[in-house]
Computed example of a mutant assay.
Amino acid sequence: MTTRRDLLGGLAATTLLPALPARARSAALPALIAGTYANEGGAGLYTLAPAGAGWRVGPAAPLTGISFGVTHGAHRYLAKEQAKGRLIVTDRRARVLADVASGGDDPCHVAVSPDARALAVANYSSGTVSVWPLGRDGRPGAPTVRQQHGTGPNTDRQAGPHAHWVGFTRDARRLHAVDLGADAIFAYDIAGAVPGQPRVAWRAPAGAGPRHLAHHPRLPIAYVVTELGNTLVTLDAHTDGTFATRSTQSLLPAGFSGASFAAHLAIDARGRRLYASNRGHDSVAVFDLAADGTPRLIQHIASGGHWPRFFLLLEDQARCLVANERSGTVAVFRILPDGRLAATGQVLAVPGVVFLDRA
């Protein structure tokens, strides 16, 4: 089977922006974890320990191929990316509590429902979505696995469905799955922890390859980055779980003609700034979000390495850490009062780094 690993081979705007509302700043930096790919030199799940004004790289737990993870309470849920993928449940000290089949190939994203009663995994290469009930002890029960369907015009990347992101609605009654191969977002109605059959909630432009989604924290709006189209798409979110396109804009600067693939996006807690990473152009794009949620590009900044697959916003510490997969580096940025980023100069060596989270 051809896997996703086989297929994936600072210009700041001059507009002055008002400072964002002040947030309480904690002097203490949190300990972090970093998931890595073994085929790019990663030794496992690293610890990044606070050290002065930054972090130092600590030892790695022998959990290799961890492409993504989420932490809820005392438990951490990790996707082990491989053919016949695995979902690994650990405690906060990386002690393995459960290791179960992910329900497909190359799992790459995980989500816990807001009521903590269900957990979902996106399996990229098989195009399947798995949902587990979670017990009171946080451990997964028997999963329900759903197969998505669809193709796109890019025969190298879209010969079949490729689930890339999963997320629950705030009321935990619906699950969405972004599918790069099918050029679609699918919706699942959730009864307990059992998903219904997938239905198309939104169609992307042919060949766009949607990758990740983020909901606005206050407005009925969502944002999608398209990996193949290198665009940020703003969507109106409807109560029936469907979406409608409001606007589309490039994630790359005007005049750039090289190869690039959009990766991660995140929105600050107040819904004032949106951040997205570009692999190839090797940058983070920063957008101002207007009161109605309309994005406006305000900055491109170099990611501090090569192939920024993921980044982690630490708003209380005014920091953003960017995981540059192919250079094996984590670059540390300050979040300025207006939401833009500024390099601190600290770059940590973490071979094959692909995701970050609080420890």
Rank of each mutant, 00 (worst) to 15 (best):
R92L: 12
P140F: 02
R93G: 05
E40R: 14
S26H: 12
S113T: 02
A43Q: 13
Q148T: 14
R136F: 02
L97T: 05
A38Q: 15
H109D: 09
V112W: 04
L87A: 11
P50E: 06
G65E: 03
L78M: 11
C108S: 13
P30F: 02
D106H: 13
G52R: 08
Q148Y: 01
A19H: 13
P62R: 03
L20G: 04
R136V: 01
S67A: 15
L32G: 02
V131K: 01
Y124L: 13
T144E: 04
A24P: 01
C108Y: 06
D91W: 05
A120T: 01
Y46K: 01
D156G: 12
A61E: 08
A51T: 05
P107C: 04
P21D: 11
A28V: 10
R25A: 11
G152S: 07
A19N: 12
G58F: 08
A34T: 03
G85V: 00
A83W: 00
Y124N: 11
L17V: 01
R139A: 07
A28L: 00
I66G: 04
G141K: 10
G54V: 10
D115I: 07
V110E: 09
A79C: 15
H109M: 08
A101D: 15
A24L: 07
S26L: 13
P140E: 02
R157D: 02
P140H: 08
P107W: 05
P107L: 10
V100Q: 15
V96A: 04
A94C: 08
G104S: 07
T71G: 12
R117A: 12
S67N: 12
C108K: 06
T36N: 01
S113R: 02
W55S: 04
A118L: 09
R146S: 03
A142P: 05
V131N: 06
N39S: 13
L134N: 09
P153A: 10
T14K: 14
D156A: 15
I33T: 15
L78E: 04
N123P: 01
N123R: 03
G152L: 09
A51Q: 11
H149N: 13
R56F: 08
N39F: 13
L17P: 03
A74G: 08
A31W: 04
A19P: 10
A43C: 09
P59G: 14
A120D: 05
R146F: 03
P107H: 00
F68I: 05
G135Y: 13
T144K: 06
G150I: 06
Y77C: 09
V121K: 00
V89Q: 01
H149K: 15
L16R: 10
A83M: 12
A116G: 10
A118H: 09
G73E: 14
I88A: 00
L17R: 01
D106R: 03
I33V: 14
T151M: 01
L32A: 08
R139D: 00
T128D: 09
T36M: 05
A12P: 14
V129G: 00
P59Y: 07
S113V: 03
R93N: 11
T144V: 14
G35L: 00
